[in-house]
């Protein structure tokens, strides 16, 4: 059994519009976010997730618009999108 800290370790992926944060210890690899992503940013990971299946991983972060739909539809609450603040002119 992994310790509490490693179970909820977070991976951060920086993008242009925001940061995609995923908790590999929570993602069961259902794929609901892959289908919902409007810009096809998310793909399957090389490493296996908590259930021994590939998990969701952002493969094309340049296309991510930080809309947060993946965070909204994740049943395991494994994804967090942090939008970058717009710089005021």
């Amino acid at each position: 059994m992994s310790s509490k800290e490693s179970r909820f370790r977070l991976l951060k992926h920086e993008g242009v519009k925001g940061t995609f944060i995923i908790c590999p210890g929570l993602c069961k690899g259902c794929g609901l976010c892959l289908e919902r992503c409007p810009h096809d940013v998310i793909d399957w990971s090389e490493e296996l997730g908590i259930y021994g299946t590939p998990r969701a991983a952002p493969a094309r972060m340049d296309d991510c618009i930080a809309c947060g739909i993946c965070q909204l539809v994740c049943p395991d609450s494994a994804i967090l999108i942090q939008k970058k603040q717009k710089k005021k002119a």
Partner: peptide, 21 residues
């Protein structure tokens, strides 16, 4: 973290199947 604060963290990941509503 990524979860609501009211979720009981010790019981996560929860026991529902992948993709369960």
């Amino acid at each position: 973290g990524t979860m609501p604060l009211s979720w009981h963290r010790e019981s996560k990941p929860h026991k529902f199947c992948p993709g369960c509503g």
